[in-house]
C-alpha cells in the first residue's frame, strides 16, 4: 500500500481540508477574536475592546431572559421526550402483556408513524403548528370546543405564560419518535432471559423499567440527553419562524435568536460573537455535566 502513498494523501486531503479550513475552522477561530472587538461590520478596522462585550453581556437583561428560556427548555424538553420515549419503547419491546416478554403487536407500524414528525423540516413543522395553534380558527381550539373542553382553550402563541411551553411541546412532538426508535434498538440488545426472570419474580412493569431496563440503557439515555440538550441550546428555526420577534413580551426569545438579532439586525458583530462564544461554552459544559453527573460503571451484558 506504500506505493504512491504521499501523492494520494495530498491529492485526497487538499480539497476537503481547504474547504474545512476556510469555512469552518477559520470562522470559529475568528469568532473568539471578534468577540473582543466592537466591530460593526462596516469598517475594516476591528477596534479591540477586551472583555467589554462579555461584561455587557453579564448585565444584559435581554440576554439573561433568553438564557433562562434555554435553561427551561434544557430541562423540560429532554425530560419529557426521554420519559415518553422510554415508556413507548418499553411498551413496544418488552413485557407488554402479562406472562410474555414480547412487545405489543404492530410495534413496527407504531415506530414508523411516531418517527414521521422527526423527519419534517423545522420550517414546515413551524408553519404547520402556527395554524394548529391559531387561537380563533385553528383546529386545536376548535376541537377543544367540540368536545366540551372549551375552558382549556388558550392563545397558544400569544400568551406570554403559555408561548414557551407551546414551543417546547412542538420540540417534544418531533423528538419522541426518534428516541422510541433509538431506545427500542438498545432494548432489543438486552437478553430476553433477564426479562423472563423478572416476570417470574412478579416484577411490575414499572419495577422492570426502573430496575432493569433503565440501568442497562444508561449510556443510550446519556447520549440522548446530550443530543436533546444541544437541540435545546441551539433552538432557532422553530422559534424564528413561529415568533420572529421573540414572542409576546419577549417570552420565547432564545439565545440563538438573540445572537441573530444582535448580528444581522443590529450590526453588533462583536457583541454577537461574544454571545456565540458563551453559547459554545454552555454547550460544552452541558455535555460535560451530563457525563459527569451520571458517571457510573457501565453494566455489561
Amino acid at each position: 500500500m506504500e506505493h504512491g502513498k504521499y501523492r494520494i494523501i495530498t491529492l485526497f486531503l487538499a480539497a476537503p481540508l481547504t474547504l474545512y479550513g476556510v469555512f469552518v475552522l477559520s470562522p470559529f477561530a475568528q469568532a473568539f477574536y471578534i468577540s473582543l472587538t466592537s466591530w460593526t461590520g462596516f469598517t475594516a478596522a476591528q477596534p479591540f475592546v477586551g472583555l467589554a462585550n462579555y461584561r455587557r453581556l453579564a448585565s444584559d437583561p435581554g440576554f439573561w431572559k433568553a438564557l433562562e428560556h434555554n435553561a427551561l427548555l434544557l430541562v423540560a424538553v429532554p425530560l419529557v421526550t426521554i420519559a415518553l420515549g422510554l415508556f413507548f419503547a418499553s411498551t413496544l419491546n418488552v413485557g407488554a402483556s402479562a406472562g410474555t416478554v414480547k412487545g405489543v403487536r404492530g410495534a413496527g407500524p407504531y415506530q414508523k408513524l411516531f418517527f414521521l414528525p422527526h423527519i419534517l423540516p423545522a420550517v414546515i413543522t413551524a408553519v404547520l403548528w402556527q395554524f394548529l395553534y391559531n387561537p380563533q380558527l385553528g383546529p386545536i381550539n376548535s376541537a377543544l370546543d367540540a368536545v366540551g373542553l372549551g375552558s382549556l382553550k388558550a392563545t397558544w402563541l400569544g400568551d406570554p405564560a403559555v408561548a414557551l411551553w407551546s414551543l417546547a411541546a412542538i420540540m417534544v412532538w418531533t423528538g419522541v419518535g426518534f428516541y422510541v426508535v433509538l431506545f427500542s434498538a438498545a432494548m432489543q440488545s438486552i437478553p430476553r432471559d433477564i426479562y423472563e426472570a423478572a416476570d417470574l419474580d412478579g416484577s411490575s412493569r414499572f419495577q422492570t423499567m426502573w430496575r432493569i431496563t433503565l440501568p442497562l440503557l444508561r449510556e443510550t439515555v446519556q447520549v440522548a440527553w446530550i443530543y436533546l440538550g444541544i437541540a435545546a441550546l441551539d433552538a432557532f428555526a422553530l422559534f424564528e419562524v413561529l415568533l420572529p420577534d421573540g414572542g409576546p413580551d419577549n417570552s420565547t426569545n432564545v439565545v440563538a435568536q438573540y445572537l441573530y438579532q444582535a448580528a444581522f439586525q443590529n450590526g453588533q458583530f462583536g457583541y454577537a460573537s461574544a454571545i456565540g462564544v458563551v453559547l459554545c461554552l454552555l454547550t460544552l459544559l452541558m455535555a460535560a455535566a451530563t457525563f459527569g453527573l451520571s458517571r457510573r460503571e457501565t453494566i455489561e451484558f
Binding site: V24, S26, A31, I34, A263, A272, S273
Partner: peptide, 19 residues
C-alpha cells in the same frame, strides 16, 4: 475534523458571513 462537530454553528455565524 472531529473538533468541528463539537462547536455550535452559531459560534461561526458572524465570521462565516464575512468569509
Amino acid at each position: 475534523f472531529v473538533a468541528g462537530m463539537t462547536f455550535p454553528v452559531f459560534l461561526a455565524l458572524v465570521p462565516l458571513f464575512f468569509v
